[in-house]
Design a protein around this nucleic acid. Structure first.
Length: 249
DNA sequence: AAGACACGCAACCGCAAACAA
DNA sequence: ATTGTTTGCGGTTGCGTGTCT
């Protein structure tokens, strides 16, 4: 979707800071400036590129649009699952979530989530009015509502471990891999990243499991697996290790 | 065909943390 | 230790486009 730069205040005053959509020329200036000279401070980037933009605006444009490593394709089903599960375990920490999803920006994920939530709420409003509190809600809607309540409570203040959508898959992996825990519990960055790609499924990985089980089946499995000895311990360390990765670039 | 509505996305705003002087 | 500046983040807004009526 290409939009004309037509937003309010396209920079009428000579010295006035420009706001609104970026023109192709501005993009080019910014891109050239950063690729050739890098970034010392963002305000200096704006100056050196001859842009009447705030450093803040330049940063945002670069991060969300110009960066060469950004994925241009729409968010895949697999990525959606990752977003949902990370959102459930981390809350609205979009930058942390984005850091685990190469090529995706916090803004993109946030937008995706917000529109998704809006959809779910609309759907829930339509379907749910008559049969409120129905036990057979689609898991996606349930997930959305769960997160809303989590938002209010704030993840840090909630002692019980969150059970995101990834848990059933994780638990299945644990079983398939022999329950040793070692390889399953040490979820590496590469592993996380591989979930975002539509890579080939190998025995015991999340893709394979999802090929055989629907979401509602996974939910059911989750309930059973939570009671199995050792599973929650493994999940806890999995959660811990993945949470602590958030600080990585 | 045209207006209304919904959706997706880009970008702004305000705040807080980090950093420098 | 204090103050000012910069950066990063999450929430929110508003525009353009697609779809529906």
């Amino acid at each position: 979707m290409v939009r004309k730069p037509s937003r309010v205040d396209a920079g009428t005053g000579e010295n006035k800071e420009r706001k609104g959509l970026w023109s192709p020329d501005e993009d080019e200036r910014l891109f050239t400036q950063i690729t050739l000279h890098g970034v010392s401070t963002w305000s200096s980037v704006a100056q050196l590129a001859g842009l009447r933009r705030s450093g803040k605006s330049c940063r945002l444009r670069w991060m969300n649009y110009l960066r060469p490593d950004l994925k241009k394709e729409p968010i895949s089903k697999r990525e959606e699952e990752i977003i949902v599960s990370l959102q459930q375990s981390l809350g609205n920490r979009w930058s942390t979530i984005a850091a685990r999803m190469p090529g995706r920006t916090d803004n993109e994920i946030k937008n995706y989530w917000n529109s998704r939530i809006r959809k779910q709420l609309n759907a829930a409003a339509k379907a749910g009015r008559a049969t409120s509190d129905s036990a057979e809600e689609p898991s996606a809607i349930a997930a959305g509502e769960k997160e809303e309540s989590m938002d209010n409570a704030d993840a840090a203040a909630a002692p019980p471990l969150p059970i995101p959508a990834r848990f059933p898959v994780f638990a299945c992996q644990l079983l398939v891999n022999g329950g040793g825990g070692d390889q399953s519990t040490t979820t590496t960055t590469e592993q996380q990243n591989s979930w975002s790609e539509d890579s080939e499924a190998s025995v015991g990985d999340g893709n394979m499991i999802h090929d055989f089980l629907a979401f509602d089946e996974l939910d059911y499995l989750a309930e059973l697996l939570m009671d199995m000895p050792g599973v929650m311990d493994a999940w806890e360390s999995e959660l811990y290790s993945s949470n602590s990765m958030g600080s990585l670039n």
